[in-house]
């Protein structure tokens, strides 16, 4: 049987080791996306609609963070969580929690920037109407996030995709420990170096399938969202 055949068999038979790795990957990346979005969506909206001191500085910093090299993020989180670091006493280095932290940091600027980009034009469209109703700042925030929901969800999916495909940061802070912190990307890297190509390929097939599913969802959500946009 070829490597492709063996990889396909691993996927179709829902191999236990394979599924454990996939499960952990999804759990870590979904949690990281959720945590990042809790902060990034309100902050991205605030940066789009409110004028306050240092706003432009925050915009530049957040945009620059999109180019953060994952290994550098991994290194910084490692230094924070290592025994000598300020958070070393919590003992979370080389755990899924550390991986979630690293991925959250990586996703945060992506979700923030995409949210801000989605809210900016909407705020311009809505400003006079919401002013005429004297809508409170909090209600304005909620209204804009809700009405930009399709674009915001697209941003979340993009962030989730980025988290799932990430390898540099999670290998540094997770340690790639079998059965504990080994996720799809780190397993692919390790198994390929060991010559265990069928497992690496099986994970590659699953990773690619998830990427295609995410992109299909982004495309579908964007198309659906366009129905609610006023054509100019």
């Amino acid at each position: 049987m070829t490597i492709f055949g063996q990889a396909a068999e691993l996927v179709l038979s829902a191999d236990a080791e394979l599924m454990a790795v996939v499960g952990l990957s999804l759990r870590v990346s979904l949690t990281a996306t959720l945590i990042a979005s809790l902060f990034a969506i309100p902050l991205g909206t605030a940066l789009a609609i409110w004028q306050f001191p240092l706003r432009q500085v925050l915009v530049v910093i957040s945009t620059s963070m999109m180019a953060l090299p994952p290994v550098v993020v991994g290194l910084i989180i490692y230094l924070l969580l290592s025994r000598a670091g300020p958070l070393g006493s919590y003992g979370i280095l080389f755990t899924p929690t550390a991986m979630i932290m690293a991925q959250s940091v990586l996703i945060f600027p992506i979700v923030l920037a995409l949210t801000r980009e989605a809210i900016l034009p909407l705020d311009r469209d809505y400003k006079n109407l919401l002013d005429a109703w004297d809508v409170s700042p909090l209600q304005r925030l909620k209204t804009l996030i809700w009405d930009a929901r399709f674009a915001v969800v697209t941003g979340l999916l993009a962030g989730f995709g980025r988290a799932l495909a990430e390898v540099g940061a999670v290998i540094i802070v997770g340690g790639n420990i079998a059965g504990f912190t080994r996720v799809m990307t780190t397993t692919i890297a390790l198994e390929t170096s060991k010559g265990n190509l069928e497992l690496a390929l099986a994970l590659g097939i699953i990773l690619l399938s998830i990427a295609v599913t995410i992109n299909t969802a982004i495309h579908w959500i964007s198309s659906f969202g366009r129905k609610y946009q006023v054509k100019r």
Binding site: D125, Y126, N128, L129, A132, W133, D147, A148, Y228, V230
Partner: peptide
């Protein structure tokens, strides 16, 4: 008390709903 008055713009502003 702006909500005690209704205001309509020349070009209607439509919420994406």
């Amino acid at each position: 008390n702006k909500l005690t008055r209704g205001y309509v713009f020349q070009t209607p502003i439509v919420l994406r709903r």
